[in-house]
Amino acid sequence: MLKCEQLTIRFGGLSAIDRLDFEIDSGEIRGLIGPNGSGKTTLFNLISGIYTPTSGSIVFEGKPIAGRRPDEVTRAGIARTFQNIRLFGDMTVWENLLVGRHSRLKQNVFDDIFSTAKKRREESLAREMLENLLKQFRMEKLRDELAKNLPYGLQRELEIMRAMASEPRLLMLDEPAAGMNPQETDQLMLQIKRLKELGFTVLVVEHDMKLVMNICDKITVLNYGKKIAEGVPREIQAHPEVIGAYLGKQVKDSA
């Protein structure tokens, strides 16, 4: 579904991602791990179009997307969340979701200004879809709350919902469990598993080993912008280079 070939980006003289080959199959949950500064978030920024690669290609469902604008990538069917939550703080939960839905609304500028039947039809379809989403995440009551007033855990959830609102086929989550307590993390694990059942393909960067080892079908390990290992959780836990580079004892403990 997503295929990166020889993907490279250099900042100054430094290769943040170095000739990376990387492939995700449709319907899987893929974990992306590695020490701080190993290039995980950079890879997200490359795929979602925020950075333009120095060389190499990214192909999504047969279409090349490397170097396309972020909005084009989203319209192609990829959505993401951010490590340091980037909600629209001054807008309500509901408005955040509506903005997330933006790219699937089919009306044009004139429909909007003159409030035509087409606009109203599109908006009511969107409302229906988003009401369901709110129900799924049990957030109906918080609909008119400003995003910046939500507690931290709910902000993370809202970011995931906002990404889902564009009905992506690939959903990229950047450290969704960061700052969550164990209960919230367990809750999150269930939700990510449900995403898979709903047919989403998920790429997740995470430091919480318990989460990664439990939910991922396959894991890719980066170090210094290079792939050092790839495989099912069991293989990764036993991989000597991974243990040496990064994981140490932690992996065995969480097994």
Partner: peptide, 20 residues
């Protein structure tokens, strides 16, 4: 959605781009 997009841009234009 135009007004919503404009307010989103004012809040955070990078996140807005990622909304398509």
């Amino acid at each position: 959605r135009i007004g919503r997009a404009l307010r989103a841009i004012r809040n955070d234009y990078i996140a807005t781009q990622v909304m398509g």
